[in-house]
């Protein structure tokens, strides 16, 4: 989509080109035509062109409303449990490289469930013995009697 749009009332007077502070408008006379060009990267969207145009030819609403330009399309990876999209194939590759291993693609909900299940399994299997960490050389008087 072109954001800078000029309607049929434009008569090529160049008021917009001469008053653009960012030099984002250019006119070139070649062969039989005067061609008006707009540079979106330079444009500061100040609206000077729209204000100055004596023909009311600049449709500035397209600069304000905008639209979405597709810039990239990447293949998705879905949660292996519920099937919601979670990240892209390329992201998964980066993740695997950083982690040094492949992991099951799971969404945050199922990842937590899997983690909880794994922890429960681990704790059940290796229930650690809890021992009080009290040094025998420190008497209760040094702790104010409260241990």
């Amino acid at each position: 989509m072109r954001y800078f749009q000029v309607n049929d009332q434009c008569n090529g007077c160049l008021a917009c080109v001469q008053n653009c502070p960012a030099n984002a408008l250019r006119a070139e006379d070649s062969d039989a035509n005067r061609v008006l060009s707009h540079n979106m990267a330079r444009c500061a969207r100040c609206g000077n062109c729209y204000r100055i145009c004596p023909q009311k030819a600049i449709e500035f609403q397209f600069m304000l409303e905008n639209g979405w330009d597709e810039v990239k399309s990447l293949e998705l990876v879905y949660c292996s449990v519920c099937g919601v999209p979670i990240y892209t194939v390329d992201y998964r590759r980066t993740l695997s490289e950083k982690l040094g291993k492949e992991s099951e693609p799971t969404c945050s909900k199922h990842r937590d469930e899997v983690t909880r299940a794994a922890k429960a399994h681990f704790l059940k299997k290796k229930s650690p013995e809890i021992k009080p960490d009290i040094r025998s050389d420190i008497g209760s008087d040094m702790r104010g009697g409260a241990i």
Binding site: C20, P21, A22, N23, R42, A44, C46, N48
Partner: peptide, 17 residues
């Protein structure tokens, strides 16, 4: 600078030139 000072006709590309 193509930002604010360009919009207020003080420091944009045109004024720099």
């Amino acid at each position: 600078c193509g930002g604010c000072v360009s919009v207020c006709l003080t420091g944009g590309d045109r004024q720099a030139h």
